[in-house]
Write a protein that binds this DNA or RNA. Structure first.
Lengths: 102, 102
DNA sequence: TTTATTATTCGACATATATCGAATTATAGA
DNA sequence: TCTATAATTCGATATATGTCGAATAATAAA
């Protein structure tokens, strides 16, 4: 897959309001009542990420799969839960995409 | 429209490889054989932006409309041509989106 | 005015996407 | 083993998207 296609797929993953909300929550670390941990990537369970989004669990699962497939979010099962966190390298890559100054 | 929806729409506009290529060409200023002008936003005609993309003019026009609707690209008719350039404020906004460090 | 160039609109069509509920899988605990 | 919880897969469906070619509009030049 070309690099352009890879980048386009990341943007596609962020083009849905629900996925964007989930990604933003993962990215900005502190959900209400949660303490930031600056050292490690912040992790949420899939279920927590859907709080306040008013979508079915199956839909949320589908969205998480999309974010994961695009390479934006990592996922790892831990007991009954599946932990999710943002791939930190991807943040840099996408940030730099918009900082191109000729 | 909520701000999240606005941002999601911008990402949607960049989620297609052809639109991403056009946007990137506009953003990075120098197409092959073109000289950069650091002062003003770089402008291309709609037709030029499709060079090497192998899509129909009507499709390209549709894509430009999408980029414009999303607020990423400005367009202005100038004689027979329509000039296009990237909205500079939008570059900052999207760049900052990924630089959130908690 | 007629012609050529550039770009857009329109209608059609195939493909992709978001969403749900029901069924299924994975795991922990009683 | 049985039950409860968390998450995923599956099948269905409505909507959105990318694409084209033909027709149309806007402009400049002959």
């Amino acid at each position: 897959m070309s690099n352009n296609k890879r980048i386009a797929d990341m943007f596609k993953a962020l083009s849905n309001v629900h996925r964007l909300a989930v990604f933003h929550r993962l990215m900005t670390c502190c959900s209400p009542g949660t303490k930031c941990s600056p050292d490690e990537a912040v992790r949420f369970n899939v279920g927590e990420l859907g709080d306040g989004l008013d979508i079915a669990p199956s839909t949320l699962s589908h969205h998480m799969k999309e974010l994961n497939r695009a390479g934006l979010v990592c996922m790892e099962r831990r007991g009954k839960h599946v932990e999710c966190w943002v791939d930190p390298e991807v943040l840099n890559e996408l940030g730099q995409f918009f900082s191109h100054t000729g």
